[in-house]
Amino acid sequence: MGPAGKFQLRNFSLILVPVIVMAMYNGQYIFNAAKPNNQRCMVRECENTPPVFKTGEWKTWAIPDDPQKARCFRYANQEGQCKKESFSKDLMKCDSWLYEDYNSIVAEFDLGCQEWKRTLVGTIHGLGLMTALAFIGTLSDLCGRRYTFIVTSSLPSVLGIVRGLSNSYYMYLAFEYLEALVASGSYSTGYILDHFGRKKTITSSYLISATALTIMPFIINMGPFPTIMVLVAKMFISIVFSATYLYVTELTPTEVRHTMMGLSLFIGRLGKSSAPLSPLLLQVTPYLPYAVFSAAAWIAAALTHWTPETHNMKMPQTLQEAEHLEPGSSFLALQEHQLSCTKHEKTAEHKQS
Rank of each mutant, 00 (worst) to 15 (best):
residue 317 Q to P: 04
residue 91 L to N: 11
residue 258 H to L: 14
residue 228 I to W: 06
residue 6 K to V: 11
residue 92 M to L: 05
residue 290 Y to A: 08
residue 74 R to I: 03
residue 299 I to A: 12
residue 338 Q to C: 05
residue 261 M to K: 04
residue 165 L to D: 11
residue 275 A to Y: 11
residue 40 R to P: 04
residue 311 H to L: 12
residue 158 V to E: 07
residue 257 R to Q: 09
residue 281 L to W: 06
residue 318 T to E: 06
residue 260 M to G: 12
residue 287 Y to N: 15
residue 90 D to F: 01
residue 87 F to Y: 15
residue 333 A to Y: 08
residue 173 L to E: 00
residue 217 P to W: 10
residue 131 T to I: 00
residue 100 E to P: 02
residue 98 L to C: 03
residue 237 I to C: 06
residue 55 T to G: 07
residue 218 F to S: 15
residue 151 V to C: 03
residue 258 H to C: 11
residue 350 H to K: 08
residue 30 I to C: 04
residue 120 L to Y: 01
residue 207 L to S: 09
residue 79 E to K: 14
residue 9 L to R: 13
residue 150 I to Y: 13
residue 33 A to S: 15
residue 259 T to C: 05
residue 145 R to H: 05
residue 104 S to W: 13
residue 58 W to P: 09
residue 311 H to D: 04
residue 191 Y to S: 13
residue 323 E to M: 11
residue 273 S to H: 01
residue 113 C to W: 05
residue 240 V to H: 11
residue 27 G to Q: 13
residue 278 S to Y: 11
residue 318 T to W: 07
residue 66 D to M: 02
residue 334 L to E: 08
residue 32 N to T: 07
residue 103 N to L: 05
residue 174 A to V: 08
residue 324 H to K: 13
residue 205 S to V: 00
residue 66 D to I: 00
residue 321 E to A: 13
residue 11 N to Y: 10
residue 289 P to A: 04
residue 304 T to E: 03
residue 313 M to F: 13
residue 300 A to I: 01
residue 174 A to I: 10
residue 41 C to T: 03
residue 75 Y to T: 02
residue 162 V to S: 02
residue 212 A to C: 06
residue 176 E to Q: 15
residue 212 A to M: 02
residue 94 C to V: 03
residue 33 A to P: 00
residue 29 Y to V: 02
residue 298 W to F: 13
residue 133 L to H: 13
residue 180 A to E: 06
residue 30 I to L: 13
residue 234 K to N: 11
residue 37 N to F: 03
residue 208 I to M: 06
residue 346 K to H: 09
residue 157 S to D: 03
residue 27 G to V: 04
residue 42 M to V: 07
residue 263 L to I: 09
residue 61 W to A: 09
residue 339 L to S: 06
residue 253 P to L: 00
residue 323 E to Y: 08
residue 257 R to S: 08
residue 216 M to A: 07
residue 169 Y to A: 09
residue 50 P to R: 02
residue 328 G to Y: 01
residue 142 L to T: 12
residue 311 H to M: 03
residue 150 I to A: 01
residue 333 A to P: 00
residue 55 T to C: 06
residue 168 S to W: 15
residue 288 L to P: 12
residue 170 Y to F: 11
residue 288 L to R: 12
residue 288 L to S: 10
residue 298 W to Y: 14
residue 216 M to I: 05
residue 116 W to C: 00
residue 254 T to Q: 13
residue 124 I to L: 14
residue 79 E to P: 00
residue 312 N to D: 07
residue 115 E to M: 05
residue 271 G to W: 02
residue 277 L to D: 10
residue 149 F to V: 01
residue 138 T to R: 13
residue 183 A to R: 08
residue 8 Q to H: 05
residue 296 A to N: 06
residue 31 F to D: 08
residue 88 S to T: 12
residue 91 L to M: 10
residue 208 I to N: 03
residue 159 L to I: 12
residue 60 T to M: 04
residue 153 S to D: 02
residue 343 K to W: 08
residue 182 V to P: 03
residue 14 L to S: 07
residue 89 K to C: 01
residue 235 M to A: 13
residue 123 T to D: 01
residue 346 K to Y: 14
residue 270 L to N: 14
residue 147 Y to E: 02
residue 238 S to Y: 12
residue 16 L to G: 10
residue 269 R to L: 00
residue 70 A to G: 07
residue 138 T to D: 04
residue 134 A to L: 14
residue 183 A to Q: 08
residue 292 V to C: 12
residue 185 G to H: 11
